[in-house]
Design a protein around this nucleic acid. Structure first.
Length: 213
DNA sequence: TAGGCCATCTGGTCCT
DNA sequence: AGGACCAGATGGCCTA
């Protein structure tokens, strides 16, 4: 997926707005839309000359009410832009975490990129399968091979071997993704289609079950 | 062209 | 008050 180049513009725009807020512009044209206002007044220096020259001059610009409304608008807009920035960052962080998760999930080919939802579902099933593997390995060590026989797992949940292979699972195993599908798997309860969508061709499915690890 | 996925914006809500 | 989180809306890009 082509990740859009992060536009640093909004951030800079934000800074500008904040600066302007710090030094309120006297009477600028209404900022109908944010970002395009361009007033000068880089510093809030007192303008002796102008004001002194025209003492009697009043009503320079819109009336007070309009000005305050305008200021309120500016503040509102500034907060919005700031919130947008934070939200963007938050989503970037979320995506980074998702990428990190993708990195530890086996895909085939390796550079195939899972979508967000696929990543989450795959991780969910993957963790479940690993957990089952550990549990059964421990059981086998303690209680002997009999307990670890396929289908003999506690609570009637299928062994990893069966679930990963998908052989014993009634779930359709047309897709290699079925390696993580099993009735006992956390994802198998609702609807397999929902939890494990078939590959859409954008990426190849993970390796066969026995090679998932 | 339709549908899927994604990034971003936005307003609302909750929390500190 | 301000930040985090969330969900809906919108528009762009890509693939079948």
């Amino acid at each position: 997926m082509p990740v859009k180049a992060e536009s640093p513009a909004p951030a800079a725009e934000d800074e500008l707005l904040l600066l302007r807020l710090a030094s309120p512009a006297p009477s600028a044209s209404l900022p109908s839309s944010a970002g395009e206002e361009d007033e000068d007044e880089e510093d809030g220096r007192p303008r002796r000359l102008q004001e002194g020259a025209r003492r009697a001059g009043r009503q320079r610009g819109p009336p007070r009410a309009a000005r305050t409304a305008e200021t309120a608008q500016r503040i509102k807009r500034s907060r919005r832009l700031k919130a947008n920035n934070r939200e963007r960052n938050r989503m970037h962080n979320l995506n980074a975490a998702l990428d990190a998760l993708r990195d530890v999930l086996p895909t085939f080919p390796e550079d195939a990129k899972l979508t967000k939802i696929e990543t989450l579902r795959f991780a969910h099933n993957y963790i479940w399968a690993l957990t089952e593997t550990l549990r059964l390995a421990g059981a086998a060590r303690l209680g002997g091979a009999a307990d670890a026989a396929p289908g003999a797992a506690a609570e009637g949940s299928p062994s990893p071997a069966s679930s990963w292979s998908g052989g014993a699972s009634p779930a359709p195993s047309a897709s290699p993704y079925a390696c993580t599908l099993s009735p006992g798997s956390p994802a198998g309860s609702a609807s397999d289609a929902e939890h494990w969508p078939p590959p859409r061709g954008r990426f190849a499915p993970p390796p066969p079950p026995h090679r998932c690890l």
